[in-house]
């Protein structure tokens, strides 16, 4: 594991991931695309763990990804890489700019950024959808349209859409529910 590269890659994520929450997700898929030391198949589990444990989701995702790529030291280095730009930028902003968030250029940049970040997260979300619901291998064998999706997963997907929008509980509740259903019905 090249720790310097790990630090640099997460530094770039910290510098360009804007919009909070899942904003780092598209970057992690991009990393998995680019390097063999990160396996894209761990990313959906990583989201689940990051949402179900304390701490900022972005930080949790960096620690988890860093750990799975380079052990304990990897987790620490990825996390430090992610927060380093924040420290530099915030200190500069706090020092030189008053009312940064009301600045014309900042507001205009975010006006353009938000739709694009939404699209990037939607694309990353589609990757999660693909591994959790779509069974392309089965479809290629049988050529039956019904085999394109996993029936049990599709049912759970629809039920969860309903429950999440109806009850609006913390994500950890649904994640634990998903785990229980997965064990009971042998997903």
């Amino acid at each position: 594991m090249n720790y310097l590269l790990l630090f640099w890659e997460f530094f770039k994520i910290g510098l360009f991931a804007l919009g909070g929450g899942l904003a780092t997700l598209p970057f992690l898929y991009d990393l998995a695309d680019k390097y063999t030391w990160l396996d894209a198949s761990i990313l959906p589990d990583m989201i689940a763990i990051s949402e179900s444990t304390p701490g900022a989701i972005g930080v949790n995702m960096a620690t988890y990804t860093g750990y799975s790529s380079g052990g304990i030291l990897g987790g620490i280095i990825a996390t430090l890489g992610l927060v380093a730009p924040s420290i530099i930028i915030i200190i500069l902003v706090a020092r030189f700019l008053n009312r940064f968030n009301e600045n014309f250029y900042v507001k205009a940049a975010f006006y353009g950024l938000r739709p694009a970040v939404t699209a990037l997260i939607a694309l990353a979300g589609f990757e999660v959808f693909k591994v959790s619901i779509i069974t392309l291998g089965q479809f290629e064998l049988t050529r039956q349209l019904i085999d394109l999706v996993d029936i049990k997963s599709t049912l759970l997907f629809l039920i969860m859409i309903f429950l999440i929008n109806k009850y609006k509980k913390h994500p950890v509740v649904y994640i634990l529910g998903g785990a229980a259903v997965g064990i009971l019905f042998k997903f």
Partner: peptide, 17 residues
């Protein structure tokens, strides 16, 4: 099995976001 179920929930959570 647990994580296969959890992944479905994650897909919904991301879609919701």
């Amino acid at each position: 099995h647990a994580f296969a179920g959890v992944r479905v929930v994650v897909a919904v959570l991301v879609a919701n976001v």
